[in-house]
């Protein structure tokens, strides 16, 4: 699609001068007119370029299998998805797992549990465990991105299911991978993190299990999730790496372990777009052709 370096240069130029994605948007529109949709091409596009926000939800739904490749089935299947959502919601209300004042993210959790046969019998005695907290964080972030509750539930559910299915085995290795790339980019910081004992205490579950939900604001987060949904979990390593690099000076100055961890769990929210842009660049640099990088 865009192996031509000239074209890549132009795109980068447009990004700088504010015409970001003019060409990308056009080529995505061409892809979206195909029937059936070519999932491979859509994934490749999404790996290479940020999705224009007007098409993001639609592309995510197709890539996550919420909508099938055939566009003329979208109305039918969309109807099924909506009915399924309503059926589950209604049953949970009747069984009093939820009521009108239940926060929507908790509603989504109960729905997800119902579908996975994991609904607790006595919810009032259940303290949310870590897995539930991961779910709730991702839900809260998805809710910021997606307005329609039916879409929102399906996206949360399929995002989490796909992530576990595709990357469940890779996630435990991501901290090691982060250490590797940090040793390439900034060995002094790595040494510092090791000597203060901070390295094993980095917020890996926030980064690699919640995919930065609750860490990055939604405008930056959705650009990371574009890459995750279209097939890369390695991008998570580079976002983490770029966070460490961006706050290198600050981190080198903190010698207390809890200080490092606390700071990284609550990074400033102003700078995150630049961090994600740099992370994507670095990811493309190390992983070369992003199509084949997992």
């Amino acid at each position: 699609m865009a192996d031509d370096p000239q074209r890549n240069f132009r795109s980068a130029y447009y990004e700088k001068v504010g015409f970001r994605g003019v060409e990308e948007k056009k080529s995505l529109e061409i892809l979206l007119k195909e029937n059936p949709l070519d999932l491979e091409k859509l994934s490749t596009f999404s790996q290479r370029f940020p999705l224009p926000s007007m098409y993001r939800i639609h592309v995510w739904k197709v890539l996550l299998g919420i909508l099938p490749p055939h566009s003329d089935s979208h109305a039918l299947v969309g109807g099924y998805r909506k009915e399924q959502y309503q059926d589950i919601m209604e049953a949970l209300e009747v069984m009093r797992y939820i009521n009108p004042s239940t926060p929507s993210t908790h509603v989504y959790l109960r729905m997800f549990q119902l579908e996975n046969q994991a609904l607790p019998r006595c919810s009032e005695t259940q303290l949310p465990d870590e897995e539930n907290e991961d779910f709730l964080s991702i839900s809260r972030a998805m809710e910021e991105i997606v307005d329609d509750p039916v879409d929102c539930y399906w996206l949360i559910k399929c995002f989490i299911n796909q992530f576990h299915m595709k990357f469940g085995d890779s996630v435990p290795h991501l901290p090691k991978s982060l250490e590797h790339y940090l040793s390439q980019e900034e060995p002094r910081l790595l040494t510092h993190l090791k000597s203060t004992g901070a390295l094993p205490q980095l917020p890996f579950s926030l980064w690699f299990r919640r995919c930065f939900a609750g860490c990055l604001p939604e405008s930056s987060l959705q650009r990371v999730w574009d890459k995750v949904i279209s097939g890369s979990c390695k991008i998570l390593v580079f976002v983490a790496l770029e966070i460490l690099l961006s706050y290198k000076i600050m981190l080198m100055g903190i010698n207390r372990l809890d200080g490092v961890v606390r700071f990284l769990c609550n990074i400033p929210q102003e700078n995150t777009d630049a961090i994600v842009t740099k992370a994507i660049d670095l990811w493309q640099k190390y992983c070369g052709n992003p199509n084949h990088a997992v």
């Binding site: 009093r96 939820i98 009521n99 908790h106 019998r121 006595c122 919810s123 009032e124």
Partner: peptide
């Protein structure tokens, strides 16, 4: 007792 859930259980 947990074996006897109260009628309402939503938090």
């Amino acid at each position: 007792s947990c074996s006897s859930p109260p009628p309402g259980r939503a938090d």
